[in-house]
């Protein structure tokens, strides 16, 4: 069985991810400051979380002084996908990797790092994974602080257009899968329909203003349950997550 054990190869594989993260976290830094966090707070969030979608949902909750339960539930549901990736990664990782390494590796298991690590043939070692996660982590953290500090110096029209960057990146994750797997596309439609109902139905919109995080959870869980019952995925699809 082939084993990828090169720290240097990991570093090289991580460069494109790091560049992508730099630009997207720049937008997160601007967004975090705009919604009321300090630049240092935004940096600390990025350094300790390393997750685009979770931070995008979490920063406004923190800035608004939301409840800790809401924050925890939001992070749990939005980041639930990492559990699946970690399950897959646990099979991909060299069996000799000990617990201390697994504790560290878990921190760097993002959508993009996971995708690149699984693109290797055979197993990977902790050495390779540490190389792979280093540059994306630096890119994500430095982009955040640059965005948070420079955001105020940029013209409004620039910062306002950067506001869509993280959303666009998330779209780039969803669309390719929805394109090739019809049930996924339908599940997406159900989920955004529910999100729109919460936002625009007068009876629901006041709840949605107060508990934005819960709304995302409710929409996602309902849509996923419906499609897990109606269109359970086949064996090979499961491995792709």
């Amino acid at each position: 069985m082939q084993i990828q054990n090169s720290f240097r190869k990991g570093l090289l594989d991580g460069i494109p991810i790091g560049i992508g993260y730099l630009s997207v976290s720049f937008a997160f830094g601007i967004m975090a400051v705009t919604c009321g966090l300090s630049p240092l707070e935004a940096l600390l969030i990025s350094m300790t979380n390393l997750t685009s979608a979770g931070q995008l949902a979490g920063a406004p909750i923190i800035a608004a002084g939301g409840s800790l339960v809401e924050l925890a539930m939001t992070q749990l549901i939005i980041n639930l996908r990492y559990s699946l990736m970690s399950v897959a990664l646990s099979q991909k990782l060299d069996y000799k990797a000990k617990w201390p390494h697994r504790f560290l590796i878990a921190f760097g298991n993002t959508d993009e790092i996971f995708a690149v690590s699984t693109s290797n043939d055979g197993h990977i070692t902790q050495r390779y994974f540490y190389g792979l996660m280093l540059i994306p982590w630096i890119g994500w953290s430095s982009g955040t602080i640059i965005g948070a500090l420079a955001g105020a110096a940029l013209p409004d029209v620039i910062t306002s257009s950067l506001g869509v960057a993280i959303y666009a990146m998330l779209i780039a994750v969803v669309v390719p899968k929805a394109k090739t797997h019809l049930p996924t596309a339908l599940c997406v439609l159900v989920s955004i329909t529910l999100a729109c109902l919460f936002r625009y139905l007068p009876a629901l919109s006041s709840f949605s203003e107060k508990y934005g995080g819960f709304v995302i959870i409710i929409c996602a869980v309902v849509a996923s349950l419906i499609f897990a019952v109606l269109c359970p995925v086949k064996e090979e699809k499961e491995g792709e997550v």
Binding site: S83, C187, V190, I192, I216, L225, A228, V233
Partner: peptide
């Protein structure tokens, strides 16, 4: 497994649209 498969796409789309 199926539920876990759909969750990421449902979460991301509810986050993006209409926000």
């Amino acid at each position: 497994l199926s539920f876990l498969y759909y969750v990421p796409y449902a979460v991301l789309s509810a986050m993006v649209f209409p926000a």
